[in-house]
């Protein structure tokens, strides 16, 4: 029996979820899209303004740069961490996992206010730098401070998909590579790294796209002069009440995200919406 004649009854359980998605996602999204090209008149002015207003492009660029930095640092910290998780015993793994998950269980607001305390003038970070001889290092209210806090918040989204992928890689492949003449370093880069790419892509896409739309951390820790795109959106909807312009900006961010996910899907294997990698194998086979 082919999969073409799947019965209606099989689809039935999907109906509630589809109805919900249509109601709370597709309809508002469609309305935003229509409004952005039809208000105040049928024109693409809302979009062209984004490129000419002198602010949006700067903020988008800054946001992309911040998100890329956060992603890179999260990968550099998360990969060895996830690797360690696959190498230690079950007890130590449990502890490492809890350390990753505690931020997950803690309220976003609590974490961000904690960072305010840590980074503020006269806070522990500044005192530490003074001890090391670097006077008056300011992180609170800067993009650097925002990046540090965002990286901490994002780390679980990098570590969890990486852990699931790295843990599924057969360690004996590394032994095989060693036996075939690879140094430990060569065995890692030629065998382990390519096989972990699915998890890397999942983590990278997840962290980058989430970072693009991050609001709370930059709003609390950043400065209005160095705002990110989510703050710009909030400003346009809550202060300026310019919904069509905000809609246009939102659509642009959405398109960037979708393009990124599509690209990651091509390069790094199947990345599902929650970022768990279905497979780390090459795509070009039946």
């Amino acid at each position: 029996m082919s999969s073409v004649n799947i019965k209606w009854s099989r689809w039935f359980p999907l109906v509630p979820a589809l109805a919900l998605l249509t109601g709370i996602l597709l309809v508002p999204l469609g309305k935003t899209l229509v409004d952005s090209v039809s208000t105040p008149a049928w024109t693409l002015k809302n979009y062209s303004n984004l490129f000419t207003d002198g602010v949006t492009m700067t903020v988008l660029g800054r946001t992309a740069l911040t998100a890329a930095t956060v992603t890179a640092i999260a990968l550099l910290l998360g990969y060895p961490y996830a690797y360690l998780m696959t190498r230690v015993g079950p007890r130590a793994r449990g502890i490492l996992l809890v350390i990753v998950l505690i931020p997950f269980w803690t309220s976003v607001m609590a974490r961000n206010f904690a960072w305010v305390i840590i980074l503020q003038d006269g806070g522990p970070v500044q005192s530490l730098f003074e001890l090391l001889g670097a006077d008056h290092v300011v992180l609170y209210g800067t993009t650097a401070g925002v990046t540090i806090a965002m990286t901490q918040v994002m780390l679980p989204f990098m570590v969890l998909p990486l852990f699931s992928t790295l843990g599924s890689i057969d360690r004996r492949l590394l032994l095989a590579a060693r036996g075939l003449g690879s140094s430990p370093t060569a065995a890692f880069w030629k065998v382990f790294w390519p096989l972990s790419r699915g998890g890397v892509m999942a983590g990278v896409v997840l962290v980058f796209t989430l970072s693009l739309g991050f609001y709370v951390t930059p709003a609390l820790l950043g400065s209005p002069q160095e705002s990110l795109v989510a703050q710009l959106l909030a400003q346009r909807t809550t202060l300026l009440l310019d919904f069509p312009a905000a809609g246009a900006l939102g659509i642009v961010v959405l398109i960037v995200t979708l393009v990124l996910v599509a690209w990651a899907n091509r390069v790094g294997g199947t990345v599902s919406a929650i970022g768990v990698v279905a497979t780390s194998r090459p795509k070009d086979r039946p």
Binding site: D170, R172, L173, L175, A176, G179, L180, S183, L195, R281
Partner: peptide, 20 residues
Amino acid sequence: VPPHRRNLGMLFQNYALFPH
């Protein structure tokens, strides 16, 4: 001598072929 300099061939029960 580390394994990669011993120049010995090895066959594993699970084949250990590189899937990629």
